[in-house]
Write a protein that binds this DNA or RNA. Structure first.
Length: 943
RNA sequence: GGGCGGAUAGCUCAGAUGGGAGAGCGCAGCCCUUACAAGGCUGAGGUCACAGGUUCGAUACCUGUUCCGCCCACCA
């Protein structure tokens, strides 16, 4: 009835089936959520990879875990939706394109804004599909019809909407501050985008002469001597006795001979350096704070490019590190460099290009974050969002507590442009037009009537007849002072709402990439439109991501979700590990230790690779990826394949799809079903707790060590006999195997589907078959007990054979003395299994057995095994074996004895524990005697 | 300067709520037995980093130490 003619290949060949099956699933629309409104929903949104990127190990792990969850839930009957998408990745992508341009010898400013953006879009199109194709190779069952991109029309709408609403509420504002500036990327960075790197630097001790007596000095210590040109004070601690009488006096700043005061501020650490600190408000965050308190002037000596400005006097035009060298030289010549010390300190670097960041004073856009953060902390405290493993919440809280306003503007071109416009005609308070205050700088001059124009105020440039568009296209820098009137708008405005003028200019900056990512869980579902998807799938169920973006992304999604959806964006946050190389090193291109997931897939197949990642994904620890492990799981797939081949030999004997525990006659069938029940329970429970490794381990163990090692071996006794009724065994083999396939499918989608569909010949995909749940099959404790006895007997015999080196070709005679009638019955019931699996020629099982002299012995709880070995092997060997066992038993007895003699143990330990130990002790004593007895018989034989 | 995580077999790692430690790979011995040598069977291999403490009992809980790794932080 189930007979189906198929040709089964020797081994599983992933390359031949993966592509075919994936297209099949996709064409059938299995990745789409079920539209049945009765079904509960389950939703995951993918952490969007960089649209121009390629797949790395981190993605592979991330995607595999999500796919396991989504396939599992889909099979459990949920309407499961996994929303895919990609991120425009502002700086990263722009950098790549800029680097390409550099190869042609041009930069983005030469190209102009529009032309450059065209290039980036082209680049995006040229590689935008790659990452998606790679996700598919892993087997990701995303609903590709819902694929989104952070800069597509809908998501751009969402970004605008959010910006406008926050702006209107006063939660977005502009301000002039010191910010982290990357001189290479030419943009501001948020605090998070600065990586602190511990570097071996130098501490320079520089003497500043006193004005009233230039022979006297104060010595300051600094790691950045080049910034001294911008010093506007020297600060000491008010308590510092060394300097107390100098407070208020004037110093002459060397090299440029500017006068600066000595001030007192309690943040100065008396212990460090000389206890006197040079204050450079324009180029140091601390100093800026000191300057605020003391109302010090700001002197900027380093510009956007990291080049010294005209305030640097004769050092103008020098690159910052070159200037440092010159200044040290000059100070040495002047005798003002007291000494130089080695000094380790943390230097802030750009997270994208590793350039040392420069604190720089500019006007930027900020999000007032406190009100959003408070709400985001609350929902986690209330347990509405759970972190797994939960240890991460502490990190989350810590960061949220001291969170600073989020700098969201970037001086880039690739990204969502800030929807704010400035009027150049509106008047400022002192009667000027605002456009006069806007400073424009070109990368290369515009030639007008033979005159080179490098820049100027906006209005000035317009008066030369340079168009607004040209200014926007060609400007390298457009500085718009903080005071200038502005307004936000959804659409490009025609007129200034204040004065009606048409002379408007849009903010040149774009938003931080993470601004759009923060909206991801609802923007991808259609917000701000009130779509069906949004109603059905928000809040999503789980976010699966790495710990490195908890602050960048997770926290911000929670804030934005609460703000705009009034609900959490997801209920669980599963934080997975970082994938390192086998030596524990972070993978990086520069180290050359990157393992390409696609190479793994090609070599071992997607299933083996996925299973490896799942098996590695224990909570709370980084993964040291090892290829050997993948190889090991390829062997596992081979095992599945071979088991299938075996079973398929009997397909024609199958009579039933379903098998019920109650209907089964033999203990071995009842046993394997009970074990299946355990495996089902373990797998589901582990997945519910995001314990992927345990889930993978449970199925692995069941398939290999219970189903293959025991059940298949037992079944051969039936199947290769011509007397036995094979129906029940065959039905069970198939039934259990099919359930294993289902259990495995979320982990190994391809091989399970290949077998299911093309070999078992099922008429529908395994991915929409019902996942086994704990109530599917019951458990039969009696069968489990019986099987344990049989296993013990077989193992006992095998152990003797193995340890005494009895060749497998030698069939032995075995006598089993059972200690009770029940055991006798059980062993007799299974005697043909023992015969076959232990390679026994004749087997006698009785309560009163007379045992032949010169037998090897194994003592079990309920029975003893005797194997006459006289003539088979050297008796001495058996003696050695028994002595070894005796030693082990005596050791155990000693230990238990000590424990049981301890009155405190008897009194305090749970009764159950005491009872068990006593029982064990009794058994060991008996065993001990038996071994002794056997030893003495052996002695006799030898002598 | 704070905070977090790790230290278990030769290697890579599991060990929910304390009762003499497990897997995979590797290693040794024996096997090409009619699903599978990418396999089977049998073994060897561990003072669970160190020192204290709590407990009848600690690899697990507490304290301290050492060695790794990470995150955060304005010592110039």
């Amino acid at each position: 009835m189930f007979r189906k003619e198929v040709s089964i290949s020797e081994t599983y060949k992933p390359q031949e089936v993966e592509k075919k099956l994936y297209s099949f699933w996709e064409e059938k629309g299995f990745f789409k959520p079920d539209s049945d409104p009765q079904k509960p929903s389950y939703c995951i949104v993918i952490p969007p990879p960089n649209v121009t990127g390629t797949l790395h190990m981190g993605h592979a792990l991330n995607v595999t875990l999500q796919d396991i969850l989504i396939r599992w839930k889909r099979m459990l009957g949920y309407s499961a939706l996994w929303v895919p998408g990609t991120d425009h990745a502002g700086i990263a992508t722009q950098n790549v394109v800029e680097r390409q341009l550099l190869q042609e010898g041009i930069n983005r400013y030469q190209l102009g804004r529009t032309a450059f953006l065209e290039k980036v879009w082209k680049w995006k199109e040229s590689c935008g599909g790659i990452i998606i194709e790679q996700l598919k190779r892993i087997g990701a069952s995303c609903d590709w019809s819902r694929l989104r991109f952070t800069m597509d029309e809908g998501l751009s709408e969402a970004v605008k909407e959010v910006f406008l609403r926050l702006f209107e509420e006063g939660l977005i504002y502009r301000d002039l501050r010191l910010i982290n500036w990357c001189p290479r990327c030419h943009t501001a960075l948020s605090d998070l985008e600065v990586e602190h790197e511990e570097l071996e630097g130098k501490l320079y001790y520089i003497k500043y002469p006193l004005k009233e007596d230039p022979k006297k000095f104060i010595t300051v210590a600094t790691t950045r001597p080049e910034t001294m040109l911008g010093d506007t004070a020297v600060a000491v601690n008010p308590e510092d006795k060394r300097y107390k009488n100098l407070i208020g006096k004037i110093l002459i700043l060397p090299l440029i001979n500017r006068e600066i005061p000595i001030i007192a501020d309690s943040v100065v650490d008396m212990e460090f350096g000389t206890g006197a600190v040079k204050v450079t408000p324009c180029h140091d965050f601390n100093d800026a704070e000191i300057a605020q308190r003391h109302n010090l002037p700001y002197v900027c000596v380093i510009n956007e490019e990291g080049i010294m400005t005209e305030n640097a006097g004769k050092y103008k035009g020098l690159e910052r590190y070159e200037a440092r060298k010159r200044i040290i030289n000059d100070l040495t010549e002047l005798g003002l460099l007291e000494k130089t010390e080695k000094h380790k300190h943390a230097v802030g670097c750009c997270y994208r290009c590793k350039t040392v960041i420069e604190p720089f004073q500019t006007v930027q856009w900020y999000v007032k974050i406190k009100p959003l953060a408070e709400e985001a902390v609350r929902v986690v405290q209330e347990g509405r969002i759970k972190f797994i493993p939960e240890g991460w919440v502490n990190n989350y809280y810590a960061w949220m507590r001291d969170i600073k306003d989020w700098c969201i503007s970037r001086q880039l071109w690739w990204g969502h442009r800030i929807p704010v416009w400035y009027c150049t005609k509106c008047k400022t308070s002192d009667g000027n037009e605002q456009g006069d205050l806007i400073e424009v700088l070109f990368y290369k001059p515009i030639t007008l009537n033979g005159k080179e124009i490098w820049g100027g105020s906006f209005n000035e440039l317009r008066s030369y007849g340079i168009s607004k568009e040209e200014i926007e296209q060609r400007a390298k820098i457009i500085k718009i002072p903080k005071e200038i009137k502005h307004f936000a708008s959804r659409e490009e405005p025609k007129n200034c709402p204040y004065c009606g003028s048409e002379e408007l200019i849009q903010d040149p900056d774009v938003l931080d990439t993470w601004f759009s990512s923060a909206l991801w869980p609802f923007s991808t579902l259609g917000w701000p439109q009130q779509t069906e998807d949004l109603k059905r799938f928000y809040p999503t169920d789980v976010l699966v991501t790495g710990f490195d973006i908890i602050f960048f992304w997770v926290a911000r999604m929670i804030m934005m979700g609460m703000k705009f959806m009034k609900d959490v964006p997801f209920r669980d946050v599963y934080i997975h590990a970082l994938v390192r190389d086998s030596k524990g090193q972070k993978m990086s291109k520069s180290k050359g230790n990157v393992i390409d997931p696609l190479v793994m897939i090609e070599k071992y197949g997607a299933d083996a690779f996925r299973f490896t990642l799942a098996a590695f994904a224990a909570q709370g620890r980084d993964i040291r990826f090892s290829e050997e492990r993948v190889e090991g799981y390829r062997h596992f797939i081979n095992k599945i394949w071979n088991a299938m081949k075996f079973i398929m030999n009997f397909a024609h004997l199958r009579t039933k799809e379903e098998v019920k525990l109650e209907d089964l006659k033999s203990f071995k069938e009842r046993w394997i079903l009970s074990k299946l029940s355990d495996a089902i329970y373990e797998t589901n429970r582990a997945l519910e707790a995001y314990r992927f490794n345990d889930a993978a381990g449970a199925v692995y163990h069941f398939l290999w060590h219970e189903f293959c090692d025991w059940y298949i071996e037992l079944s051969k006794v039936i199947l290769y006999s011509d007397k036995e009724d094979k129906e029940e065994t065959v039905n069970c083999l198939f039934y259990v195997f099919e359930n294993i396939l289902k259990l495995l499918h979320p982990f190994m989608p391809y091989v399970t589907e290949e077998i299911w569909l093309n070999i078992l010949g099922k008429d529908n995909s395994i991915m929409i078959s019902p996942y086994p749940t704990y109530d599917l099959v019951g458990k039969d404790e009696d069968a489990i007990y019986r099987m344990e006895q049989i296993i013990e007997a077989i193992s006992g015999i095998r152990s003797i054979r193995g340890e005494l080196n009895i060749a497998p070709s030698l069939a032995v005679d075995v006598y089993i003395k059972s200690l009770d009638s029940q055991t006798e019955e059980i062993l007799n019931d299974g005697h043909h299994f023992i015969l076959k699996l232990a390679k026994v020629r004749s087997l006698k099982i009785q309560r009163d057995i007379s045992r032949a002299k010169g037998s090897a012995v194994s003592v079990k709880k309920n029975f003893e095994i005797y194997i006459p070995i006289k003539g088979l092997i050297d008796i001495e060997q058996e003696k050695k074996r028994l002595l070894k066992e005796l030693q082990k038993v005596e050791q155990d007895i000693g230990f238990l004895n000590k424990k049981l003699m301890n009155e405190d143990f008897i009194r305090n330990a749970p009764k159950e524990v005491v009872r068990k130990d006593k029982e064990k002790y009794e058994e060991l004593l008996i065993k001990h005697d038996k071994i002794k007895e056997n030893l003495s018989i052996i002695e006799e034989l030898i002598n």
